[in-house]
């Protein structure tokens, strides 16, 4: 009997145990688990599971030329940096500084060159490229430099991206297939949960569920 682990939240499917709530009997081989099976904890699709015990591929060395291209920051990036620093000030109880960073974040947000004709399909394509290229480049760099902070951010955002891709692909393909499910977004890591009840903790960053906010239909 084998075990398969969800790459997003770490839930383990044990063939010997099955998932009784989902009517998957003990002894059900992974191949025989239905393709529309989703992780009982985080709703990741079956393709996001891997055999437990399989090792990660070795880190590939990066060509130096590809890594040393530090360009200027755009308005959108500065806005995101400032809204993140506003939260840092809030944690330090520097409330006036928090407001100042939020003011800067809003200012730069208003300076973003908005492309009106882009659709969620375009976002889905960029996301696919992140998962194919962006994360592997960033992961290699972070591992090479033993930068645990960067690695942490990448582990979280890659998991969030995987789930987002599943949701976006489903949405782009089938239109409104979310039904009447509620949508929650983790305020710490951005994990999107589609379901009926707020999770007790975020399956990705493990923050208590009260930091996952429901997105209302308006």
């Amino acid at each position: 009997m084998k075990k398969y682990v969800c790459k997003v939240c770490g839930y383990v499917y044990d063939e010997a145990v099955g998932v009784l709530d989902e009517e998957i009997q003990p002894g059900t081989k992974w191949e025989d688990v239905p393709d529309d099976f989703v992780c009982p904890v985080c709703a990741a699709s079956k393709t996001e599971f891997e055999l437990l015990g399989e090792t990660e591929p070795p880190v590939e060395a990066l060509p130096k030329a590809a890594t040393l291209n530090i360009k200027g920051l755009s308005a959108g990036e500065i806005s995101a940096i400032c809204s993140s620093l506003a939260k840092a000030c809030e944690k330090q109880r520097l409330m006036a500084e928090m407001e100042a960073f939020n003011e800067l974040a809003d200012y730069f947000k208003s300076k973003i060159n908005v492309e009106q004709d882009k659709t969620l399909e375009d976002a889905a394509k960029m996301l696919a490229d992140d998962l194919l290229n962006g994360f592997s480049t960033a992961n290699s760099a972070a591992k090479q430099e033993a930068d645990r902070g960067a690695q942490r951010s990448l582990v979280w955002s890659e998991k969030v991206s995987v789930i987002m891709k599943t949701l976006l692909d489903r949405f782009v393909k089938g239109g409104e297939t979310l039904g009447d499910s509620r949508i929650y977004v983790c305020d710490i890591c951005g994990f999107i949960y589609v379901g009926n009840a707020r999770p007790e903790i975020c399956p990705v960053c493990k923050v208590p569920g009260f930091k996952m906010y429901q997105v209302e239909k308006r």
Binding site: I70, T119, L127, D130, A138, A142, Q144
Partner: peptide, 25 residues
Amino acid sequence: ADSVVAAQRALGLSKVLQWCIASVV
């Protein structure tokens, strides 16, 4: 490290652009 900064920024920029697209929608 420069390599980390460059890679984080490239990925961060992609997320910023997707944020903008989704905000418009």
